[in-house]
């Protein structure tokens, strides 16, 4: 059984077909890349999987269970987590608090009004582990809004990781990240892919080719082709889309 599978997934915005009959699958432990020009429907595809949008047609299943049309918080509880193309963090919360919020959501009583938030030792330990894993442990006490853009992009991933997902959808993690910080980001994505299956949307071809086990190419909402990094880089049609080679 596939970890994630979409069958004929379609989303129309009025007359515009943003995602068109996409059949897509992710295996356990896989790191799958999605590439495509602007407007190809990559982010819409993520929105359909995570419940931000309801599909017009088609099905999303996780471990064989139909999850299409569920609201975001329930899909999160099934084990799918995501990051956002435009940094989507908690500005006036510290790094620790932001990650803690995700870890706490999996506690037995995340709404407990009677204990101190710091009293649950397993939650604070887990929070620190995640900060360590992504290399933000020295900045746990800093307000998210004061972090550098690169660190905010890493925090974006740390927050997504905090809910212990089995599948992590990364939407352009290197967006706007300086060349100096890109190496950090690559190593973070590598580490993350050891604990969860990852789907990576990325514009930087070098990074996608280096990281992915498999790549899907989208254009105008359709799957153009699928294959290993070497197959994709050799594919004439892909070259046509990305390089304009006739």
């Amino acid at each position: 059984m596939k970890l994630l599978e979409t069958a004929g997934l379609t989303k129309n915005f009025g007359g515009l077909v943003a995602v068109d009959e996409v059949n897509f699958a992710v295996e356990k432990g896989e790191l799958k890349g999605i590439i495509g020009p602007n407007g190809a429907g990559k982010t819409t595809f993520f929105n359909l999987i995570t419940g931000s949008l309801k599909p017009t047609r088609g099905k999303v299943s996780l471990n064989g269970e139909d999850i299409s049309g569920l609201p975001p918080h329930l899909i999160s509880r099934k084990g799918i987590s995501r990051t956002f193309q435009i940094t989507n963090i908690f500005p006036e919360m510290t790094v620790y608090e932001s990650v803690w919020a995700g870890v706490n959501s999996r506690a037995k009583q995340p709404w407990n009004p009677f204990i101190h938030a710091g009293a649950a030792t397993d939650i604070s330990r887990k929070t620190k582990e995640i900060c360590q894993m992504v290399g933000l442990d020295s900045k746990m006490g800093e307000l998210s809004t004061n972090l550098s853009h690169g660190d905010q992009r890493v925090l974006e991933i740390a927050i997504a990781l905090s809910t212990e997902p089995i599948l992590l959808l990364l939407d352009e993690p290197t967006q706007g990240v300086s060349p100096k910080e890109i190496d950090t980001m690559i190593s973070v994505v590598r580490k993350v892919s050891e604990v969860a299956a990852v789907v990576l949307i990325e514009h930087n071809m070098d990074i996608v080719l280096e990281l992915s086990d498999n790549i899907t190419v989208l254009e105008n909402g359709r799957t153009v082709t699928e294959g290993s990094p070497s197959e994709i880089s050799a594919n004439r049609e892909v070259q046509k889309i990305f390089l304009g080679i006739e």
């Binding site: 956002f84 006036e92 932001s98 919020a101 995340p110 905090s162």
Partner: peptide, 15 residues
């Protein structure tokens, strides 16, 4: 506080 800071993201944490 998470909801005040970013209610959309809080949904994606499973709340």
């Amino acid at each position: 506080i998470s909801i005040r800071e970013n209610s959309e993201r809080t949904k994606f944490l499973g709340y």
